[in-house]
Design a binder for these strands. Structure first.
Ligand SMILES: [Mn+2]
Ligand SMILES: [Mn+2]
Ligand SMILES: [Zn+2]
Ligand SMILES: [Zn+2]
Lengths: 137, 137
DNA sequence: TCACCCCCTTGGACTAAGTCTAGACCTCGA
DNA sequence: TCGAGGTCTAGACTTAGTCCAAGGGGGTGA
């Protein structure tokens, strides 16, 4: 039982509105790492009159208030991620899909010892193919 | 005493031309991780008639032939990197500058053990500020 | 030397991602 | 009821990047 979406928005200082709820319902509950235009496409299925500018404004607002993170992992694609905890990413070179990798699944050491660099955050970005699971037709 | 630039191009299967040499002279010898349009701006200083399309074509060709790597590290910026050996990157949040971090300066373990993922390559992407060196005016 | 061919370069059209703006529209409190 | 602020919208605008059709240039063989 988690808090309702309007509550979540308010607790991050965001005034709920019909459009913002429609965006939040999709983007706060996906692991697909969608782009802004993909979010627009998805939200329009249930809310056809929402404008592109509103989706961009809403996503940028959510990022500014810490509800979402924004990543530029693969060429030219900026994506949104509701997982705001530290974690790593794996990019499937075949499909372009981005998968989360739990923070503790990888060991990274000696980052804090780098001379001259004050590292505030970091992640491991991996590329390759998903194993097993025969390719879907 | 390294090989000449025309030799380098030929050894990667690239026919030298005046334009390609001008691009190569700059981009194979920078640590600045420039964008395509930054390369265009720089090359035009010495070769003012070179077209934008040629710079993009040349950079893409260099990437295809393994002379350059392309990275999308920070939001919306695709940059070119003549360092084709494995290494990590540090992004200065203040200036946006991208710095190379030697492969051995960081320890990454257990990447190969990830179940279901065939990791072909990876790097650590770090963000923060450069220490020391008072900010330049 | 000349002609031909192939590759290269060029400017401009085109596309896609993203931002900005001006006005319409809500909502809520006085 | 009214006004003020905040929100939404369509469309113009910007920027990165690709595509295209036409022109140019250099090597090779006659
Ligand atoms: Mn939060
Ligand atoms: Mn090489
Ligand atoms: Zn993620
Ligand atoms: Zn680099």
């Amino acid at each position: 039982m988690s808090t309702s979406i309007p509550e979540t928005l308010r607790s991050h200082g965001i005034q709920p509105s019909a459009q913002r709820l429609a965006v939040a319902e999709y983007v706060l509950d996906t692991t697909a790492h969608p782009s802004a235009d993909q979010v627009w496409g998805k939200v329009r299925e249930r809310f056809p009159m929402i404008s592109r500018a509103t989706v961009y404004n809403t996503l940028n607002l959510f990022v500014a208030r810490g509800l979402l993170r924004q990543h530029a992992l693969s060429e030219g694609r900026v994506v949104f991620d509701p997982n705001t905890e530290p974690h790593h990413h794996f990019i499937d070179e075949t499909t372009g899909a981005i998968h989360d990798v739990p923070w503790d699944a990888v060991d990274v050491r000696r980052v804090a010892e780098l001379r001259g660099l004050d590292v505030r955050e970091y992640q491991v970005v991996m590329r390759g193919r998903r194993k097993g699971k025969a390719e879907k037709a």
